[in-house]
């Protein structure tokens, strides 16, 4: 498609560091190509700011192809912006019109404190994973042959779909309760669906949920916002599976 140039107004959350109070600042940015990604537009803004000897906007990003999960941003009131099943780095400016005003804010959650501008600390997710998001198998090269345990294709596919989570935190950001259950549910599901993960399923779900609660995430009220905003389309089924796993685990 032919690309064109648009002029936009940006309202961006600026915050010097974790301790400072932040506020929304307004910027005008002209000649943005609609073929640019949202982050390329921010690059352009930063180039402009640097040329004006102003501090550029800090934002998280890395792979810019929608898989590392590092980019975030709450754009016009939605996690990863208006397009569906897309991370911010793959959101393109063709989703916006000439003259649009675009709000850009960081993820908001007690468990994801703002570090600077649009950057938040998502290490809570790492700690949940450390609490049980693994199979306790050491490296040896002497495990059984990969094909010794057949896994029904259906289960393997469901496990993969759950494992496709990129840990970006959009679920937490878009949930009105700041709940992390889609993230945790996906991880619990991936292992619960595979024979290799079943062995320690009980301990895993109990530990991961305990850690999740300790981190200060809110509670799921099944609004379904997470599933809609998840750039990888992780299904609510995974939360249900976690609920089930946890229920069985806690009465065991």
């Amino acid at each position: 498609m032919a690309s064109k140039s648009i002029n936009i107004n940006l309202k961006i959350w600026r915050q010097k560091d974790a301790k400072s109070k932040g506020q929304i600042e307004t910027y005008k940015l002209d000649n943005v190509s609609t073929a640019s990604s949202f982050l390329e537009m921010l690059d352009q803004l930063n180039e402009q700011l640097i040329n004006e000897r102003k501090e550029p906007v800090a934002f998280d990003h890395d792979c810019r192809e929608g898989i590392c999960g590092m980019c975030s941003l709450y754009i016009n009131g939605r996690a990863h912006g208006p397009a569906s099943k897309v991370t911010t780095c793959q959101l393109h400016m063709r989703s916006f019109k000439d003259g649009d005003t675009i709000y850009v804010e960081p993820w908001r959650s007690k468990a994801f404190p703002v570090v600077k501008d649009l950057i938040v600390d998502r290490s809570a997710f790492d700690r949940i994973q450390q609490a049980g998001g693994f199979v306790s198998v050491n490296t040896s090269g002497r495990t059984i042959d990969a094909n010794a345990t057949p896994v029904p294709k259906h289960d393997a596919d469901r496990a993969f779909e759950a494992a496709a989570c990129i840990g970006c935190g959009a679920c937490v950001a878009s949930c009105k309760n700041g709940s992390a259950m889609l993230f945790v549910g996906a991880k619990v599901s991936q292992y619960a669906l595979l024979p290799q993960g079943k062995v320690e399923a009980t301990e895993r779900v109990l530990n991961m949920v305990r850690q999740m609660d300790d981190e200060g995430f809110g509670n799921c009220t099944n609004t379904g916002a997470c599933e809609v905003e998840c750039p990888k389309g992780i299904s609510l089924e995974n939360i249900a599976r976690m609920n089930r796993e946890y229920l069985f685990a806690s009465v065991k």
Partner: peptide, 12 residues
């Protein structure tokens, strides 16, 4: 072998 044991969901 190692990855399957770890729960990596390869295509089947």
């Amino acid at each position: 072998d190692q990855c399957v044991a770890q729960g990596v969901p390869f295509a089947r």
